[in-house]
Amino acid sequence: MSKILEIENLTVSFDGFKALNNLNFSMDSGELRVIIGPNGAGKTTFLDVITGKVQPTTGRVLFNGKNLKNIPEYKIARLGIGRKFQTPRVYLNLTVRENLDLVCNQNKNVFSTLFGRANTTEQRTVAGLLETIGLDAKANLLANLLSHGEKQRLEIGMLVAQSPDLLLVDEPAAGLTDEETENVGALLLSLAESHSIIAIEHDMEFVRQIANDQVTVLHQGSLLCEGTMSEVQQDPRVIEVYLGEAPE
């Protein structure tokens, strides 16, 4: 199977502080990878590097074999990497449908946006997405009026509208009720059938729901261990990192 993402000897330092330290990571296309790790492990920086928000100090990031160094964020997004932020970031003053339509737009330069109109394929994509995320009844409501969980689903829908190959999802379950968490989990699982996904998560219950493949544990900017959920849970190093040193 081909590798969708390869990261080699990646170090990111901010004024000498190494947020990521000589990290090696790779994942196959089609995989749903969950990344866990205690606070400050470098999870968000990890996503920042992939999406071009932060440049690597040393090392490189390959997406489908292409080095992402010095490519601006919007071009990386067009290459096929979509990112969902920790707090839902949707356009509050636009309706749900308009939110999706903006992202769906095939040609994203100034003049085609100005003169172009949504074609039927795009309209159909939007309609399909509204159904997938379960917001078709609220399509004409301002996103401002949605509940937190609905906003999370809308943002995931916007990601999918970009038709990316790789979805990066940062703590999708943060601040959700149990029921909403399960909805989002189911949504991610159904998306995993056609996309590669990296999900960063704290909520172990949620990780257990979605982690069918490999789980990666980050600690202090490096890779601590990798394996299935049950392997990882049994790993003494992981227990130590999460719970402190085991008593002798």
Binding site: Y74, A77, R89, V90, L92, L94, E98, L102, N109, Q162
Partner: peptide, 28 residues
């Protein structure tokens, strides 16, 4: 009005999100 106008509002409200959606806000 239309897509262009909505994109302007989007830039006003959350420019980072616009960038990660594949738009280059600078040109706009």
């Amino acid at each position: 009005s239309g897509r262009f106008g909505r994109l302007l509002k989007a830039i006003r409200d959350d420019e980072t999100r616009v960038r990660f959606s594949g738009y280059d806000p600078t040109g706009y």
